[in-house]
Design a protein around this nucleic acid. Structure first.
Lengths: 153, 153
DNA sequence: CCGCAAGTGTAGCCCGTGCTACAAACTCAC
DNA sequence: GTGAGTTTGTAGCACGGGCTACACTTGCGG
């Protein structure tokens, strides 16, 4: 195989593709930060069980992930106590929510129905660069809300 | 905590969040199918090493993942031989590439620079529902390509 | 035909995230 | 204060996917 023209795929493509464990872990972190912020806002505190329900996983998974995020200083908690966001965690949550909202708004602007817009926003928000996010914001503004009547679907 | 108002988060939110191992595995499958298709087109065959380079992971990772995808009948290969797409694999690759192109085109339409558009498309393509994809296509067409001069940056 | 480099495969490790089953702590009501 | 029910934590398993180190094939060039 030494002879065949090597797949001289530009290194860039590898870069483009590379989505490592760290990326996934970072997504999880954002989801948790966002969820904790939501719960605190809604109920005054975030508990393991509520997080589990909100995120759709077992409480065990939450416990372990919260432990990891605590190691990473995004959350803080003590055994059998509720969960808080650290300063860094708050920042992360804010960014995440902002992204989330921008993407969601944008999808609605695009004409996507609420249900799908919400679902897709969850997935997309972790993958939009600052540039794309800015473009989304811009277009939503300059062209005015084009949705309204579709908000139900 | 039996008393406090339970986080009566709509079950829907859990549904919205739930992104399981299977989702990740499915994304990987799409990436591999797409990559294999690309390599076959470009070089006539897909080999482990080329895939590794293209995807930016070690050959070992490729070998194991290819084995899994072979189990799932998306790819076929034999030891030390090159890798083929099964019928199902081809179908998956086609869908993936179509999505990819639509998303990429759309991002360019949005005014995002090529580099970021490519990177973001990689991430986003796995998370757009059929509805969103359709909306993207529609808007690209009805409003004509608004990019061109920005394709470089 | 033989050796060597490139390609491919295997062993074995780590980590994140999912689970069930079980144990411990907590809290409320009595 | 105590018991019951809820919540939280722990043990132990599975799996995907990342890696390095090492072993084996392959195929080309001499």
């Amino acid at each position: 195989m030494a002879s065949r023209p090597k797949a001289t795929v530009t290194p860039a493509s590898a870069d483009t593709h590379r989505r490592t464990r760290e990326d996934h872990a970072a997504e999880t972190a954002q989801d948790y930060a966002e969820a904790v912020a939501d719960l605190i806002e809604a109920y005054g505190e975030a508990r393991v069980t509520d997080l589990a329900r909100l995120l759709g996983v077992s409480h065990v998974t939450v416990v372990r992930t919260v432990a990891r995020l605590q190691r990473e200083e995004l959350l803080s908690t003590r055994p059998y106590r509720s969960i808080f966001l650290t300063t860094r965690g708050k920042k992360l949550a804010d960014e995440a929510r902002r992204r989330h909202l921008v993407v969601l708004d944008f999808l609605l602007w695009l004409g996507v129905g609420l249900t799908n817009a919400q679902r897709d926003a969850e997935g997309i928000e972790h993958h939009v660069s600052a540039e794309t996010l800015a473009a989304m914001e811009r277009i939503c503004k300059t062209r005015g809300p084009r949705r309204k009547r579709r908000a139900g679907g």
